[in-house]
Design a binder for these strands. Structure first.
Lengths: 223, 223
DNA sequence: GTCTATATGTGGATAGAC
DNA sequence: GTCTATCCACATATAGAC
């Protein structure tokens, strides 16, 4: 018989993980749903199914735990974006893959959301993962666009850094518009718009197949 | 001699206003700075320089006061945007004026920020002003672009609704990127990018002067 | 109308037992 | 390592005096 006598709350889907890992994952979820100020240690503990002592043993406090969660989320997002941007195809195709990838639009971006949280932005430590993630994203998109320009697929006058920032901004702003409307339509429209503008930068004399005008962008968005 | 005997805290800049108006303005500021969850009645009262009784006399509670503040802010934003979009000039010029207008980028958008607040988005009443404001904005930009297409200034293939959503998203997303970086540069880059893409939609055979390639977008952004 | 006093819950963390 | 008990401050609202 085990000495462990407290399966108090089986945290639905994290049964076989250690307390530390459960704490990080629960925090990731709550930060996404409620933001930093809106997330209390109590809520984290309940979701993770552990007691307070457990949390303060592994982490120095709320901000320390949030730091671990934010870092984890940023890494996850980076990996998801890289999967689209590193795919085979033209530069347009790869940027389109990133823009059209399946997203639960109405939930918003777990990293972008942190940006609206005063306590996060004011802490150099908590802000660092956001800065690093978005910096990387813009550079990576710019790289793809630069390849497109060098390969003759995209117009030589295109400014890769500026358009990369535009692409990243459209996604983040699309979330904002969609949440205001409680409808994914504005997100889809914004993506469609920037893709149409980008498509018109295709030279048509590219090595690869020229991108067709983007369709209605019927990405399978969840709620 | 006046019976009023409590100039307890002169609320810096709102001296001559009634308590109700001071409460609304203080709430507008605090919602912008800290969001809905991060704003306590106590903080509002302190900034407004009034007591609790005063607040609960004019408003039923925090959410009621927030509603008044959000409505006010949405109206203000609408007026500011209309000023740019209704200006004389080509469609490109008017959209550019909106995108390049002076903004305190690192503070973010007071309306867009509400979008990240769970309690706001989940309340139909609190979300309504956001929905209405962003809906109006996108329609208004689309109108301007439609005029540009009809007048032959912009390419006939341009989709005004989609590009309008893109423009609105670039602004909102630009705020997110800038706050993550604690630097206005990503905002400026995103705006520069979308303007360059839009400029390439100009036919060059327009009635008005064809827009020059957008410059470095040295808008006088404050911190 | 506006103020102060009071009430109840929660936020975030510490102490110390097992 | 993990739990429970305890602590103080604050969030939000009500009651009632002036």
């Amino acid at each position: 018989m085990d000495t462990q006598e407290h399966p108090s709350a089986p945290p639905a889907g994290q049964q076989r993980l250690g307390a530390q890992e459960r704490l990080v994952r629960s925090t990731q979820e709550l930060l996404w749903e409620r933001g930093y100020v809106g997330t209390s240690p109590k809520a984290i503990l309940e979701r993770a199914g552990v007691g307070q002592g457990s949390m303060y043993h592994h982490f120095s406090g709320k901000s320390d735990l949030a730091l671990a969660a934010i870092r984890r989320t940023a890494e996850d997002m980076k990996a998801a974006a890289e999967e689209c941007l590193a795919a085979p195809g033209t530069a347009y195709d790869r940027v389109a893959a990133y823009l059209l990838r399946e997203r639960r639009v109405l939930r918003g971006c777990p990293i972008g959301r942190m940006t609206q949280d005063r306590d996060v932005v004011r802490s150099a430590e908590l802000r660092a993962p956001l800065d690093e993630m978005f910096g990387w994203l813009q550079e990576r998109i710019a790289e793809v666009l630069t390849e497109g320009v060098r390969g003759g697929e995209l117009a030589a006058g295109l400014d890769p850094e500026a358009v990369a920032a535009t692409v990243a901004a459209v996604v983040q702003g699309g979330y904002v518009l969609a949440r205001a409307a409680d409808d994914t339509a504005p997100f889809d429209a914004a993506v469609r718009g920037v893709l149409a503008l980008l498509a018109s930068q295709a030279t048509g004399s590219a090595p690869g197949p020229a991108p067709a005008a983007p369709g209605p962008a019927q990405a399978p968005h969840g709620r």
